[in-house]
Amino acid sequence: MTSNFQDLASLIALHAEYAACIDEQRFADWPGFFTEDCHYRVVARENHEAGYPLAIMSLKGIGGLQDRVYGVTSTVFHAPYYQRHIIGLPRVTACDGDSLSVEANYLVIRTRRDMLSEVYNTGRYIDRIVRTKMGLKFAEKLCIFDSELIPNSMIYPI
């Protein structure tokens, strides 16, 4: 099902850039990884598997992502923390012209001020990635997390 070696290299680079953007808290740049009419969702595995529609975050279009960024950076009170994303190798599950279906495991470590680092959230991305003139962009990004309990809150994107 895999497309070609060049695609795979581009997907690895995309994930690396994506992780760096979030982990370095360049949140204003985060919507730039997505298409104009994207859909970004963070969903508990139990809801995903049971077919329930509820998400922790369900953001539509670049505008929805920008609203979240405004919320995260300007309005939602929270203890500051670092995130560190470890993203596994991409697994291309379908390739249809300029649209790639790609999955990858992820692990997010959270480090709060004065605290030990902890496994914060773990799961898998199920993405639909499209080729655009601006390079590869996420048309859909679904973060399905195994974690049964969110340690208090989830503020920043995954």
Partner: peptide, 11 residues
């Protein structure tokens, strides 16, 4: 109709 669950541990 159930639409899903969210679970958090609050210290």
């Amino acid at each position: 109709v159930v639409q899903g669950y969210s679970r958090q541990r609050i210290p």
